[in-house]
């Protein structure tokens, strides 16, 4: 159910919709091409290397390094209530990159390009409908159901 992914979701239908179910269960999944073995994050159904459409999910550790970040003060429609918020782009330990919010375990003055971070699956608990995302936290931060953020 990919419509579960994100505060505002713009792409509810995708061949990698199971990603959101895994995230809800606390697992960060990338993809692996069954034909040539190429691994990707974000996950993709179709291999850019050998063009095969046969893939499987593989679990990522979530270990990451910060490549860049910014604090957003002027927000787009749908995000005004969380302003200001900080987004970061990280290099994942396994492969690929990810963009996400920096979470509560990191204060603004601690943020440094190159720092180690942990990608943590999360659920928007204040919302009635299922909405999942991930955030960038201090290494060692773990996910658990019902944990308040």
């Amino acid at each position: 159910m990919f419509k579960w992914f994100g505060k505002v979701n713009f792409a509810p239908y995708t061949k990698v919709s199971e990603f959101a179910n895994h995230l809800k269960d606390g697992r960060l999944m990338g993809s692996k091409c069954k034909q040539c073995g190429q691994e990707s994050f974000p996950p993709r159904a179709d291999c850019s290397k050998c063009l095969s459409g046969d893939f499987e999910y593989i679990e990522f550790s979530g270990e990451a390094k910060l490549l860049s970040y910014t604090v957003i003060h002027a927000a787009p429609t749908g995000f005004e209530d969380v302003t200001p918020y900080t987004i970061g782009v990280v290099d994942l330990k396994e492969t690929g990159r990810l963009l996400a919010w920096l979470g509560d375990t990191i204060s603004e003055d601690e943020i440094k390009i190159g720092m180690d971070l942990q990608v943590v699956p999360r659920v928007f608990e204040e919302l009635e409908e299922i909405k999942v995302y991930y955030s960038l936290e201090k290494p060692g931060t773990t996910w658990s159901v019902g944990q308040s953020s």
Binding site: K7, V8, A11, S68, P76, L98, L99, W101, I113
Partner: peptide
């Protein structure tokens, strides 16, 4: 990219801000 990025409220200035910081 709307599938993996816009869900976090990215903006056009924010992308160039990532370039600037880098």
């Amino acid at each position: 990219e709307v599938q993996w990025e816009s869900v976090f409220g990215t903006t056009f200035p924010a992308y160039y801000a990532l370039f600037a910081k880098s």
